[in-house]
Design a protein around this nucleic acid. Structure first.
Length: 407
RNA sequence: GUGGCCGUAGCUCAGUUGGUUAGAGCGCCAGGUUGUGGCCCUGGAGGUCGGGGGUUCAAGUCCCCUCGGUCACCCCA
């Protein structure tokens, strides 16, 4: 037997029931907020991520599934959605507002652990072409709502602004000076980053204590970015979304500016406890070669982690399980099952070649609300219907039974 | 890439100082009930003991290598 690849998961029932709820909920949420569906390539040119995500980010340096295709091009299994969606927007003309929703697998070559897989799944929202804070607010609100509607308890939003490139030019020098002053207390990793990517030192776990006293971007915003952030905050207040300011939240990708955020729930306990994150990425379009700026905000949420934080819902899987007394009645049963399904009921059956007892066991396991038995009474135009919850059993006229099942 | 722990039935695990045909519970299938689930009883199917090599009269058990799982570091979904 050939086992699955390291860091990949088979998502089977009963766990997949929670996935179905999450994905349906996401689809519905996106539609309610005016986000259209997009289907994106899983494979992109390596260059897209190297330039968009950032050549010296962790993701690009260590985590990409990169290989040469048969034409000798370097291609990469997408490690995230945003760069590809912005590429698609630019490639399609890149004007105006586009609000889109995507979902599917992502790939990062890492050592797996709880909540961190080599193939993982995300649902993703991108609000493109809108520079104003309404986009930031909407995306954060939707992130919160998705989790709330999925039944995830204790949702908290961590929010920060890392400013624009112009804000950071002066701030970066301040931070560098600070880091150089404490250089001998920093970990080797942070020491290496403090010159070329000093912001990332801020959210280092190992250097948490040293960095606690460092200057933060939030205190060095320009007038416009500060106003933008204030507007995001008051918008969230108006939406009733609680959040915590996280001054050292910077996120690992190069394309972010202004608003960044992550969402958490105590129901998902792991070292990597973030269920999703995102932010504004106005520089991204130009990083990947757009001649026009592409303002945008997006969020990616980790389905695997969300599902782990979702409660099990005890509701019947099927409206009715059809049991057949006697293999001779298979054909009638089959066409009745077909009719009920066509009418929109959730129906299953196991054929008529097994004992009724065995069919009832199957019905029980299938989570059916009721069992309908097709037997002798069918000849008189009747079926016997049993409620699996109460054990109550009634013989009814066929049409009456159909109406009862639809109730 | 680094480290800790763990690999015996579909699942959870037991298996004595190395010693005969490797066990249990749950699950699955069937019967007890020739038309009725959950509870109960009976029976059945199901295992290259992760893989390879070594030590030994003898290895699930000891040694080495390797693969995998899991958790953590780094970083993120």
């Amino acid at each position: 037997m050939i086992p699955r690849l390291k860091g990949t998961d088979d998502i089977l029932p009963p766990e997949s029931a929670r996935w179905r709820r999450l994905l349906r909920g996401f689809d519905d949420l996106a539609a309610r907020y005016g986000y259209d569906l997009v289907l994106m390539p899983v494979l992109e040119a390596t260059e897209l991520f190297a330039r968009g995500v950032g050549a010296d980010t962790e993701v690009v340096q260590k985590q990409m599934y990169t290989f040469e295709d048969r034409g000798g091009r370097s291609v990469t299994l997408r490690p995230e959605f945003t760069a590809g969606i912005v590429r698609a927007y630019v490639e399609a003309g890149g004007t105006g507002v586009m609000k889109v929703a995507a979902s599917g697998p992502q790939f990062r070559y890492e050592q797996p652990q709880k909540g961190r897989r080599r193939q993982f799944h995300q649902v993703d929202l991108e609000y493109l072409g809108e520079p104003g804070p309404r986009a930031d607010i909407e995306v954060i609100e939707m992130s919160h709502r998705l989790l709330a509607e999925a039944g995830v308890p204790g949702i908290t939003v961590h929010l920060n602004s890392i400013g624009d490139a112009s804000d950071r030019a002066t701030y970066r020098d301040l931070l560098r000076d600070f880091l150089h002053g404490v250089a001998n207390e920093l970990s080797p990793d942070s020491r290496r980053r403090m010159d070329d990517n000093p912001l990332r030192v801020l959210d280092s776990k190992v250097d948490k204590d040293v960095v606690a006293a460092a200057p933060v971007p939030l205190d060095h915003l320009g007038a416009e970015t500060a106003a933008h952030f204030a507007a995001v905050r008051s918008g969230l207040d108006a939406a009733g979304i609680g959040y915590e300011i996280a001054p050292r939240l910077v996120r690992g990708l190069d394309y972010y500016n202004r608003t960044v955020f992550e969402v958490f729930s105590p129901a998902f306990e792991a070292a990597q406890s973030s269920l999703g994150g995102g932010g504004r990425y106005d520089p991204l379009g130009e990083l990947i070669g757009s001649r026009l700026p592409v303002p945008g905000v997006g969020v990616a949420m980790g389905c695997d982690r969300i599902v782990a934080a979702m409660p099990d819902l005890e509701s019947p899987r099927l409206d009715v399980f059809v049991a057949v007394a006697g293999a001779a009645r298979e054909d009638v049963a089959s066409s009745w099952v077909r009719r009920l399904r066509a009418e929109g009921l959730r129906v299953d059956w196991a054929g008529g070649d097994r004992s009724l007892k065995s069919q009832f066991k199957a019905a029980d396991r299938s989570g059916a609300a009721a069992v309908a038995v097709i037997g002798d009474e069918w000849e008189r135009g009747e079926v016997r219907v049993k409620s699996m919850a109460t054990g109550e059993e009634v013989t009814m006229d066929i049409e009456e039974a159909v109406a009862w099942l639809h109730r």
